[in-house]
Amino acid sequence: MSQETKTFVVTRFDPDKDEVPKTQSYEIPVEGDWKILDALNYIKDEVDPTLSHRWSCRMAVCGSCGMNVNGEPKLTCKDPVSNYGDTVEVAPLSNFPVVRDLVVELEGFMEKFKAVKPWIVVAKERAVEEGTTRQSPDELADFKQFSMCINCMLCYAACPVVSNEPDFIGPAALALGHRYNQDTRDEGAPERNEIFRDEGGVFSCSFANECSEVCPKKVNPAGAIQQAKLRNVLDWAASFVVKRGGKES
């Protein structure tokens, strides 16, 4: 049986040497059960050690290996080579500046991530001696899905709003903020909702749903943002009923 080969057309860019990105083709033998990441690692190890890409866990949980494969954002350690024909294009994720080759700049995202206050906000921290908080399985289910994001950035690459409005906080970070708002242990919703209402917040989302479609972890950021919009409107309406600083439910 002759070994199957495929040609990988990989975007290359070295800011030390190149004005603009170019592509380089590698024809390599592939195994039937390979993922796209296996092909890149084969190229790196056997053909061209100058290729730069991020990866670590190779089990779809560290979020390092997002790239555009044939134009679609994919988690490359989960994306089977067998889904593609003889030629496969691998490029850095869209909507991010490129550091080098397939490595994109994440600093902008890290700022947005922090902006939503992704931690439990409470007026007074609970003491360890008080033990664990009670939270029913249903209460957990209210936010669990939105806590599953691996920060792989596929949703930012897919989002039409991110590409037009660079200040848009974006799917993963908004979903994360919403995750904390939904958590019974958290009291930070009023602060986060102000951020959500601001420019670049939830109301910038046009509900294209692309983010949820590309999410490899089924986090459904589009759903989170819709819920967050609704909660915002309700909280805003409620603020007329209960005065600010008044009793919270």
């Binding site: 664990t132 209460e139 958290d186």
Partner: peptide, 17 residues
């Protein structure tokens, strides 16, 4: 327990523990 206070989504029993 501290991790629980910080928001770790530990799986729960029916009674919330």
């Amino acid at each position: 327990t501290r991790l629980e206070h910080w928001g770790c989504p530990w799986s729960r029993n029916e009674d919330g523990t």
